[in-house]
Design a binder for these strands. Structure first.
Lengths: 221, 221
DNA sequence: GTCTATAGATCGATAGAC
DNA sequence: GTCTATCGATCTATAGAC
C-alpha cells in the first residue's frame, strides 16, 4: 500500500472503525491497560478475567491467547508497572545546593509524587498484599524501585561530606523509611484523622536529625 | 532460639489442657482460629468459607450462623488480631537507662519481635493489601497498633531531654518508620539478597542519628 | 445450635467457527 | 488472531432435618 492510497482512504477507514486507525493499537497494551484497572482496584484473587476482557474491550479468549493464564497476565502487568514507575524516580535535581535546603526539597518532592498518584499507592498495596503468594514479583518491585531509591539517596548523602554520615546506605533507609511509613499510615491505612500530622513536621524532623548531626567522635567528648 | 522453644512449650501446654476437655471450646473462637489460618495464608478474596469451616472443624452453616457472612467473619478476625498483637507492644523495659544503651536495645527488641513472628508479618500484609477495600479495618489497625507504638516511642524520646528532640512525635515516626521499612524490604518483599543489610547497621545508624543530635540553636554557630 | 445437601452465580480456561 | 459459546469446578449463602 502506498502512502497516497492510505491518505485518500483515511477518512473512510476512520468512519468505519470509529478509531484513528492509521495504525492499530497494540492489543497486548490494550489488554494490560484493562488489567491494570482491574488488578489495582480489586487485587489479584478478586479480579476476574471476564472483567479484564470487558475493561480492555476484547474477548476473554484474546486475553488468554496473549498471556497464557491469569498468573501470566498478572506478572506481565507488574513488570510493566515496575518499569513505568521507575521513570518517575529519576526526576531529581538540586544536588548542588546545600543539604539544609536541598534535603527538605528532595523529601517534599518524593512525598508529593506518591501522595498525588493514587495509581502508585494502589500498586504498592497490591505488591505488599500479594508478596506472600508472588515473592518473585515482590523482588522485581524491590529491584526496580526500592533499590534504585535507596542507592540514589545513599549517593546524595555520601556526596555531602559535611553531613558526617558514617553509613550512607543505612541512613538512606532511615530517611526513605520515614517517608514511606508516613504515607502508609496517613494515606494507605487511612490514619489521617486517627494520628494526624502535617507533612511539614515530618520533613522538618528528618532534616533536623540529619543536618544537626555530629560524628560519634566529636559527640563523645 | 528462645522464641521457638517458648512456642514449642506453649503448644505442648496447650495440648495438655485440651485433654481434660470437660468443657467444649467456644465455637466462635474455634472458627476464628480456622479463619485466621486461612485468611492470613490466602488473603481475603482467595479464602473460601468451605476451607475456613474445614480448618475450624465445623460445618459451613455453623460459620454463617456465628458471623453472618464472609465480611463479618473477616471483620471479627481482624479486630481479634488487632487486640492480640497489641499486648505484644507493652513488653518494654529499660526506660531508666541512658539512651545510648536503651535505644538500640528498644529497637532490637521491636525488630526481633516482628521478624520472629510470621503471623504478625502476614497480618500486616493482609491489612495493607485489603486497606483499599476495607478502610475501616485498616483504621482499627492504626488505632490499636500504630498509634500506641508511635505514642510509646514519642514518650520515650520526650522523657530524655538530653536528646534535644524538638518534635518527639515526628521523630518517633522516623525511628519506627525506619524499622518498619527495613522489615518490609528485607522480609515482606523478600529483598534480602537484592539489597542485603545486617540489622545492626540500621540500628547503629538510627542510634547514631538520634544520640549525636544537637539542637538547631547549638548547631548554627 | 449444628449438621447435610443444594441452589444459584461466577470463576478460569478452552473448543471451534470465522 | 479474534470472536462466541460453553464446560466443569468452585464460590457464597441458605433451606431443612435433627
Amino acid at each position: 500500500m502506498s502512502v497516497n492510497y492510505l491518505s485518500l482512504c483515511f477518512g473512510y477507514l476512520q468512519a468505519l472503525t470509529e478509531l484513528p486507525a492509521t495504525e492499530p493499537i497494540d492489543k497486548a497494551v490494550q489488554i494490560l491497560e484493562g488489567a491494570m484497572q482491574e488488578f489495582l482496584t480489586h487485587g489479584y484473587a478478586a479480579t476476574s478475567m471476564d472483567r479484564v476482557a470487558a475493561a480492555a474491550g476484547v474477548s476473554k479468549a484474546t486475553v488468554y491467547s496473549h498471556f497464557g493464564d491469569k498468573e501470566g497476565l498478572f506478572e506481565a502487568l507488574v513488570k510493566r508497572l515496575a518499569q513505568q514507575k521507575f521513570l518517575h524516580l529519576t526526576t531529581l535535581d538540586c544536588w548542588h545546593e546545600e543539604p539544609r535546603h536541598s534535603l527538605p526539597q528532595l523529601i517534599t518532592n518524593a512525598l508529593q509524587h506518591v501522595l498525588c498518584d493514587p495509581e502508585h499507592l494502589a500498586f504498592i498495596r497490591l505488591i505488599i498484599g500479594e508478596s506472600g503468594r508472588f515473592p518473585k514479583l515482590a523482588q522485581i518491585f524491590v529491584q526496580n524501585l526500592s533499590k534504585p531509591g535507596i542507592e540514589l539517596m545513599s549517593q546524595y548523602l555520601a556526596k555531602h561530606p559535611q553531613l558526617n554520615i558514617a553509613d550512607p546506605e543505612a541512613t538512606a533507609r532511615i530517611i526513605i523509611g520515614a517517608v514511606v511509613y508516613f504515607v502508609q499510615i496517613q494515606e494507605m491505612l487511612h490514619g489521617q484523622e486517627i494520628v494526624p500530622m502535617e507533612p511539614e513536621r515530618l520533613i522538618n524532623a528528618i532534616t533536623d536529625l540529619v543536618i544537626t548531626h555530629q560524628s560519634p567522635q566529636a559527640a563523645s567528648i
